[in-house]
Amino acid sequence: MPTAGPRSGDAIFASVERVNAELFTLTYGATVRQLLTDLEEVEEVNKQLDQMGYNIGIRLIDEFLAKSNISRCVDFKETADVIAKVGLKMFLGVNATVTNWDAEGTCCSIVLEDNPLVDFVELPDTCQGLHYCNILSGVIRGALEMVSMKTEVTWLRDMLRGDDSFELQVKLLKQVPEEYPYKDDE
């Protein structure tokens, strides 16, 4: 099985067609702003961003698997490594590291070295409960669900809230065995 080294994410990122990063960032910002206007409550905006991300994640996994040539990961630890070193690099151009594993190997942190979604962003005092990048937690959750891993993804640290980095906690709740339909030979 190929290892998920940072070069594979870099190579894929270099070869995929991309939209202008500033346009993407500003469009995302406009979307968040519109959600704040329409929904008025920050918690509802957080839920909506997560759901939008989830819907993206369940569709994005096909493109990821087709373009990355990554074979099936053997466990959750390898999967988290692939997300950090290949997936986030492939789609956002972001380097990330996996840290803080629990003893069971079912919970870890993904720390983003950069986050293009927050360029040009400063949260007003009225939005302090907002998880501005909550779309990313939904994307990860949706993509993992499509590869039979039910997870909970939450923000632990957020630079928009004054923290020193962006850190997501990814917790494996249940690994669903894949079922393949078979024909009975009778």
Rank of each mutant, 00 (worst) to 15 (best):
36 L>M: 12
105 G>N: 06
145 E>A: 15
130 L>E: 07
127 C>E: 14
140 I>L: 13
32 V>M: 08
146 M>W: 03
127 C>Q: 14
167 E>G: 00
181 P>S: 14
37 T>E: 14
71 S>C: 02
72 R>H: 05
64 F>V: 10
45 V>H: 10
182 Y>F: 12
105 G>T: 09
133 C>Y: 08
93 G>A: 03
94 V>C: 07
84 A>S: 13
42 V>W: 03
31 T>D: 05
30 A>W: 01
176 V>R: 11
29 G>W: 04
101 W>H: 11
176 V>G: 00
156 L>H: 03
1 M>P: 15
122 E>P: 00
43 E>P: 11
163 D>Y: 05
74 V>I: 08
98 V>T: 12
159 M>W: 00
76 F>C: 02
169 Q>F: 01
158 D>M: 03
182 Y>T: 14
87 G>C: 08
148 S>P: 06
139 V>L: 07
118 V>N: 11
132 Y>D: 06
25 T>N: 15
154 T>E: 07
15 S>D: 14
159 M>T: 15
141 R>Q: 14
85 K>Q: 10
162 G>D: 03
85 K>D: 04
94 V>R: 02
119 D>Q: 13
1 M>D: 12
28 Y>H: 05
80 A>R: 07
66 A>G: 01
83 I>V: 13
93 G>C: 01
169 Q>A: 13
150 K>N: 11
10 D>I: 05
45 V>W: 03
41 E>F: 09
106 T>H: 15
62 D>M: 04
152 E>A: 08
36 L>G: 14
49 L>T: 04
39 L>S: 02
39 L>E: 09
6 P>F: 02
74 V>M: 08
160 L>Q: 04
30 A>Y: 06
118 V>R: 04
144 L>K: 06
165 S>Y: 00
53 G>K: 05
13 F>D: 10
172 L>A: 07
80 A>L: 14
68 S>M: 02
58 I>M: 10
171 K>M: 04
63 E>L: 08
90 M>I: 01
79 T>E: 14
158 D>Q: 02
152 E>Y: 01
137 S>C: 12
167 E>D: 06
139 V>F: 04
4 A>G: 10
62 D>K: 10
18 R>N: 09
90 M>P: 04
63 E>Y: 12
78 E>K: 10
90 M>A: 13
17 E>A: 11
109 S>H: 09
92 L>K: 05
114 D>A: 15
9 G>E: 11
45 V>E: 11
95 N>D: 15
82 V>C: 09
12 I>L: 15
134 N>V: 02
69 N>V: 04
